[in-house]
């Protein structure tokens, strides 16, 4: 069976389209808006939605072009329906619905979080279940048990800020421009992570708890910088960055390992923008080696928001036949429990 999917993703600040055939990525085009949002210090929903509209058709064209595929050859079209910024999602959904309607293709309404997990299904990572997936980005932080790609089961998630959001906010307090991830990591590499004992969220909840909390660590950094004053912060920036980063990524690695232990799976995966963090990768590798677990980390372009992962999720999500999808809609939030295929 031929399985050529054109996927579109516009849930946040990347306008993305991809052509995927089975597990093989034929093209994966991402137009990032990060520079546009940098002047605001974070993603502005209205700015994101405006930019998606001016970019999405060209991104789709380029994805088809690079794959050497004509729209008529595509078997199905997939689009991110949720969760995300509603104005941004609506641009992708309206575009995908119109394309599918006019081209008489079936449409898959995919879940963005499902996409982050399903990215590991794609070549060359091609991870087969069972495994525990950590997804950490500016918008989400969660652990899923994947025994079947169609139905990941939520094990734990952040109760407040996302890990990437905490990184961006901390970077800002240390005078690192948005997006703060790479800058914070570079600074942290020159510091000592044991200098400051920033609180690890939900430490008191016991070893079985797999949720996360990052509101406290951000506040702790704020107080520490106030106490040190401008000169003190300037003298201790690297140690502050290293200790802060540690307080964010160590719980991610620890809980991922704990989840893998209790689920008894042979592999773990990390995805989302925070998966690019070298310290997180090192901690996960270290823990996995000790346990003899396989660690799957897709390429950076597959970890940050992209459309190839939406095509992967679409592989495990029932398609809606032409033209029954014309009334389908975008949704800002995921249903309770998270991923729904």
């Amino acid at each position: 069976m031929s399985d050529l999917v054109l996927a579109i993703e516009t849930s946040c600040d990347e306008t993305a389209a991809a052509v995927v055939e089975g597990r093989v990525i034929r093209s994966n085009v991402i137009a990032s808006q990060a520079d546009l949002h940098a002047v605001y210090g974070g993603v502005v929903p209205e700015v994101a939605a405006r930019h998606h509209l001016t970019t999405v058709n060209a991104v789709v064209d380029e994805a088809l072009d690079r794959a050497g595929v004509d729209l008529v050859e595509v078997d199905r079209i997939a689009v991110t329906r949720r969760p995300g910024l509603i104005g941004a999602l609506l641009v992708g959904v309206a575009t995908a619905k119109a394309l599918a309607y006019a081209a008489r293709k079936d449409l898959v309404m995919a879940d963005h979080l499902h996409g982050h997990v399903a990215a590991c299904w794609l070549d060359p990572v091609a991870l087969d279940p069972p495994f525990v997936a950590l997804t950490a980005s500016g918008g989400h932080t969660r652990l899923d048990l994947v025994e079947d790609y169609a139905h990941p089961v939520l094990l734990g998630q952040t109760l407040d800020d996302a890990a990437g959001e905490a990184i961006d906010k901390g970077a800002r307090l240390l005078g690192i421009p948005y997006p703060g991830g790479p800058g914070l990591e570079a600074l942290a590499a020159q510091g000592d992570p044991t200098t400051y004992d920033f609180p690890v969220g939900l430490r008191s909840r016991g070893p079985d708890d797999l949720d996360f909390s990052y509101a406290g660590v951000k506040t702790a950094l704020l107080y520490a910088t106030r106490e040190l004053g401008d000169d003190g912060v300037a003298d201790h920036r690297a140690d502050l960055a290293a200790s802060y980063q540690e307080a964010i990524v160590r719980p991610l690695a620890d809980r991922l390992m704990r989840a893998a232990d209790s689920a008894g799976v042979p592999a773990v995966s990390i995805g989302g923008g925070v998966a690019a963090n070298g310290r997180l990768r090192a901690l996960v590798q270290e823990g996995a080696e000790r346990r003899g677990l396989r660690v799957a980390i897709p390429d950076r372009a597959l970890c940050t928001d992209n459309a190839a992962m939406i095509a992967a999720a679409a592989h495990f999500t029932p398609a809606i036949a032409w033209p029954a999808f014309v009334g389908e809609d975008a949704m800002a939030t995921a249903p309770p429990g998270g991923i729904a295929a």
């Binding site: 509209l53 999405v56 058709n57 789709v60 064209d61 729209l71 609506l90 641009v91 309206a94 575009t95 995908a96 619905k97 119109a98 394309l99 599918a100 309607y101 006019a102 081209a103």
Partner: peptide, 9 residues
Amino acid sequence: ATALGLGQA
């Protein structure tokens, strides 16, 4: 977006 999607396809 709807108009451009129809036009594109």
